[in-house]
Each structure stands twice: as structure tokens, then as C-alpha cells.
Computed example of a mutant assay.
Amino acid sequence: MEYFEDVTVGDTDAFGSYGATASEITDFAERYDPQPFHTDPEAAADSPFGGLVASGWHTAAMTMRLLVDEFLADGATRGALGVDELRWRRPVRPGDELTVTTEIVDKEGWDDELGVVSVRITTEADGEEALTMVGLVLYERRTAP
């Protein structure tokens, strides 16, 4: 288990593989972001994207799945305070394989039980930046300061 004291600014990690599918893209969009370029391949072909693309929120959700499975699972994490600097750099398309890179960019105490770790998160789709953000992750302290 990795606690706040174990986290080191500058540490990086890369992990995951998540395949985006057309059916998952349209299912998510029909429920949460029903814009035609997310839900209708024919309408999407006439959009600025030139084809079906995942909602940015879906890209964030797929990123979260990889983070939970590969990054947060071994940490004494207790949720998050939010994200900063969220950007969708390029659309995710059916067939893209997503991977995630993390970099610890800052850490500070929050209270006697928790610390906040700022994690720069980059999601790539087939090797190209698709999403970037900084997560503000709460970590349990092993001992009070």
C-alpha cells in the first residue's frame, strides 16, 4: 500500500490498454452526451470530426477506469478534490487503444490524516495525446505530521 509519505514528486508511470469501440461510444453518448457526432455515424461523417468520436466525458471515464485499475488500486487513496487543466487534445475514435501516463507534480498536507497529491495525467489514443489533466488525489497519511 502506497501512502502519502511514499509518493515522490517526479515519479512517472505508464500503463493500461483500453480499446474504444463504436458501440461503447454510441451507448455512452446516447445516455450522457447525445450529440450527433457521438451517436450517429452518418451524421458524424458530415461533422468537423469526419466520423464517429467519443464524448470527451467518455474519454475521461475510460481514463478513470485505467487509473482505478492500474494507479489507484495500490494506493491508500481516499477520493479526489477534482481535476485542473482538463483538455481534450484530440478525439478518440472507434478502434483507438488508450494508454495512460502519470507524473507526480506536487504534494502537500491537507490535514493530520490526508495529503493531496497532484498527478499530471495524459491519455494517449494510438500514441497521440487525447486527454490531459491534473488530478488532485487524496492520500491517507501513514502517520500524522
Rank of each mutant, 00 (worst) to 15 (best):
D46P: 03
V117E: 03
V117Q: 12
I25V: 13
T77K: 08
G79F: 01
V116M: 10
G82W: 06
H38K: 00
G10S: 04
G95F: 12
L98P: 02
L98R: 05
D112M: 00
R87Q: 11
A125K: 05
G10N: 08
E128D: 14
L81N: 10
R89W: 04
Y32G: 00
D11K: 13
E24T: 07
A73Q: 15
A44G: 03
G16E: 00
L86T: 11
A125N: 03
V100Y: 07
A125R: 02
P48C: 11
H58C: 06
F71P: 01
I25Q: 02
G79H: 06
V100C: 07
G95I: 11
V53D: 00
E108I: 00
G109P: 09
F4Q: 00
T26R: 14
A54H: 05
R87N: 10
Y32K: 03
L114N: 05
E103K: 04
G82I: 02
D96P: 08
A44Y: 05
A54T: 04
V83I: 14
E103I: 02
R65A: 11
T8M: 14
D6E: 05
E24P: 02
E85A: 15
E70Y: 13
E113A: 14
A29T: 01
G95R: 10
A130K: 00
V105L: 08
D126R: 13
D74N: 09
V68E: 14
E103F: 02
L131N: 12
G82N: 03
P34I: 07
E42G: 00
V9Y: 08
G95T: 10
P91W: 01
H58G: 05
D46M: 08
L81C: 04
E85W: 10
E30H: 14
E30F: 06
Y18M: 07
T77N: 15
T99P: 01
S118Q: 12
T99S: 13
D11T: 13
L81T: 10
D106P: 06
E30S: 14
V83Y: 15
F49G: 06
V9D: 08
V105G: 04
E30P: 06
T132P: 03
G115D: 07
G10K: 02
V53K: 00
L136D: 09
E113N: 06
V105D: 03
A45D: 12
D106G: 13
G19P: 11
V100T: 11
H58W: 09
T123V: 05
M133F: 07
M62R: 09
T26V: 11
D13V: 11
K107W: 04
P91Y: 01
S118G: 12
G135V: 04
R87E: 14
F15P: 01
A73W: 14
L136C: 06
Y18D: 01
E108G: 09
E128Y: 08
E24I: 08
T59Q: 01
V117T: 09
A54W: 01
